[in-house]
């Protein structure tokens, strides 16, 4: 009989993100969940991934446990191969050296444009104000492939974002290049707490690729603010493995401050 595994939605997103990384490639790491993805991925799957942080840490191998609030301190700049600053960090991405980037988001639209600035109202009179771009706009503009991590909630998947903080495919095929963004770049995958999306090669629209084991693909997309394209074969995503969960809970974030979230379950 299949064993049931319990995990938080955050843990599932982190595990999925870690499995997407490619070894021996460069990875521009955004603030928050992407930091944990990078650590888990490097420990388990991609030992030779080269992390880059916008504050100028090139190739760090973080100390565990991960200390929340750490951005640019000794823990997450540990064992770097180079220490620089922000203008040089973005020089690495702008000149084509960053293969992957990873960002969190408040809202996403069908072309992978993301908002992390405000919700509701207008820019001058927002309903709720959040941190904004940070370096997210540069990551999404420069990296060859951008991975977006976002909670699977209908209100986050919207036909039009309240503020376009970081560019996806803008209005469709060719729009990035027409705007002057580097050619051949753009969003690659969207990791959610229930599913994995990609982008259709022709239309550049977000496309459901896989769902968590046990979930029905139609159920997964029915509450979203728009209907995504559906891949011909919807794959099944296994839940977090015992090793992924052990590392997250015992070594990376023993205080469970960052990996907490809503509890979910699936067959192991």
């Amino acid at each position: 009989m299949a064993r049931t595994v319990e995990f938080t939605d955050t843990e599932f997103m982190i595990a999925q993100g870690a499995r997407l990384l490619e070894d021996g490639k460069t990875f521009f790491v955004g603030w928050g969940i992407p930091q944990i993805v990078a650590i888990l991925g490097q420990r388990l799957y991609v030992p030779d991934v080269i992390q880059l942080f916008e504050f100028g840490a090139v190739g760090p191998q973080s100390v565990l446990p991960f200390v929340r609030g750490t951005m640019g301190g000794p823990q997450n700049t540990y064992r770097s191969i180079q220490w620089l600053n922000m203008n040089w960090a973005f020089a690495y991405s702008a000149s084509g050296y960053m293969d992957y980037g990873m960002l969190g988001a408040l809202q996403i639209d069908p072309y992978g444009n993301i908002n992390s600035t405000f919700l509701g109202g207008t820019y001058r009179n927002p309903g709720r104000r959040f941190a904004g771009s940070g370096g997210g706009n540069q990551v999404a503009s420069h990296c060859w492939k951008t991975i977006i991590v976002i909670r699977h909630e209908g209100r986050r998947f919207v036909p039009k974002v309240d503020f376009l903080t970081s560019p996806g495919y803008l209005t469709g095929p060719g729009a990035r290049e027409k705007a002057g963004l580097p050619a051949g770049t753009g969003p690659y995958r969207v990791v959610t707490s229930k599913a994995l999306f990609g982008f259709d090669g022709e239309t550049k629209r977000i496309t459901l690729l896989a769902v968590l084991r046990g979930l029905d693909p139609d159920d997964v997309v029915k509450d979203l603010g728009f209907r995504p394209l559906m891949s011909k074969e919807i794959e099944e995503i296994p839940p977090p493995t015992p090793e992924e969960l052990r590392l997250l809970r015992e070594e990376i974030d023993p205080s469970r401050f960052l990996i907490r979230g809503e509890w979910m379950s699936a067959s192991a």
Partner: peptide, 30 residues
């Protein structure tokens, strides 16, 4: 809303004594 990269570049322009600098981000965004 200048973004981190935008502000860092504005200071670089100031340090470099030029009135502006070009960049291939911010484009297409709000």
């Amino acid at each position: 809303e200048w973004t981190n990269g935008g502000l860092a570049l504005r200071l670089l322009a100031g340090a470099r004594g030029v009135p502006f600098l070009p960049t291939r981000d911010l484009l297409g965004s709000d």
